Amino acid sequence: MTMPLKLGIPKGSLQNATFALFKRSGWTINVNDRSYFPEINDDAIECAICRAQEMSRYVENGTLDAGLTGKDWIAENESDVHVVADLVYSKVSARPARWVLAVPYDSSVASLEDLKGKKISTELVAFTKRYFETRGIPVKVEFSWGATEAKVVSGLADAIVEVTETGSTIKAHGLRIIHELMQTNTQLIANRTAWEDSQKREKIEQIALLLKGALLGEKLVGIKMNVPEDKLPEVVGLLPSLNAPTIASLYNSNWFSVETVIGTNVVRDLIPELLKKGAEGIIEYPLNKVI
């Protein structure tokens, strides 16, 4: 009998975003607030919730077969795991987060070298120490249990290394970013022994395929329209697509139905242009997954 795949779901800020991503991918995860073992509508998977900071350790030692965690925490723990897929999603935006070095606006520090002999507060302690050591800059790195921005504002540290997506929170605390240490995103990782198991590997690859398809689907929409024959070349000339638009003639008519997939970032500007070129009855619809 095949054992279910033990899958780790990150607890905290990414938890709800992860549940939503799995929902779009075809899996429904239900969790009780007091339980660390949510239910999932797939008998081949057993879920467990744990902190993203600890996920790679549990995957590395085999407590979990696979899990989702940040590239940053894999680097922090120096975990020996197999990275299956990069998944760029968050609770704020669909772009990678950044670990940055920030100081007060009125600080004289302008570069990494200016921090020689000074104190840095961060949750990413081991990585930050290695980062400065490889550059030959002696600094004191202290662990922050939270409210990291307040450490430097109150004078408890000379600088902070903190994660940000937009930089707005750092600016709101009266800090300025002087250096980017790394970009990070969520990664689906696997225990190396589990990855060598053909059945578990197939399940992990299925999860990766559908999660990536759901993320791509968020960035695209489908559009369909009717176009008269004499306007068809101009309309089709405006359309970007994954391959080529689908064109079908309408029954007993010199009109055509045109359908394609385009990026969400261009559709608002494209639709008015399509109307100008003669398209009618334009329908835009969301895509759940694009594989």
Results as ranks from 00 to 15, higher is better:
127 F>R: 12
62 G>A: 14
126 A>K: 13
114 D>M: 06
55 M>T: 08
101 L>C: 10
58 Y>L: 11
63 T>Q: 10
91 K>Q: 13
107 S>Q: 07
52 A>G: 12
53 Q>M: 06
79 S>N: 09
46 E>L: 09
66 A>S: 06
99 W>N: 13
111 S>Y: 01
89 Y>Q: 10
75 A>H: 08
48 A>V: 02
42 D>S: 08
39 E>G: 10
49 I>V: 13
28 T>Y: 07
55 M>G: 07
104 P>V: 05
73 W>L: 02
56 S>V: 01
65 D>A: 08
67 G>S: 06
64 L>E: 03
39 E>A: 14
103 V>I: 03
57 R>G: 12
67 G>D: 01
63 T>A: 13
116 K>Y: 00
60 E>A: 14
60 E>P: 05
111 S>T: 08
67 G>I: 04
61 N>M: 08
52 A>E: 12
69 T>F: 03
74 I>W: 05
57 R>P: 00
34 R>N: 14
113 E>S: 08
31 V>I: 12
90 S>F: 08
80 D>G: 04
108 S>I: 02
118 K>Q: 06
51 R>I: 01
27 W>I: 00
86 D>E: 15
121 S>W: 01
53 Q>S: 09
73 W>H: 02
81 V>I: 12
112 L>W: 02
118 K>S: 00
90 S>P: 10
29 I>H: 05
51 R>M: 09
98 R>C: 08
102 A>T: 07
99 W>I: 12
89 Y>C: 11
35 S>I: 07
74 I>M: 09
75 A>R: 13
56 S>R: 05
96 P>A: 09
86 D>N: 13
54 E>G: 03
76 E>L: 04
94 A>V: 12
78 E>D: 15
86 D>Q: 14
33 D>G: 12
128 T>N: 06
107 S>M: 00
57 R>T: 13
107 S>V: 03
55 M>D: 04
35 S>D: 15
101 L>Q: 06
83 V>C: 09
84 V>E: 03
109 V>S: 00
53 Q>N: 03
59 V>D: 04
97 A>M: 14
72 D>M: 13
72 D>W: 08
123 E>G: 14
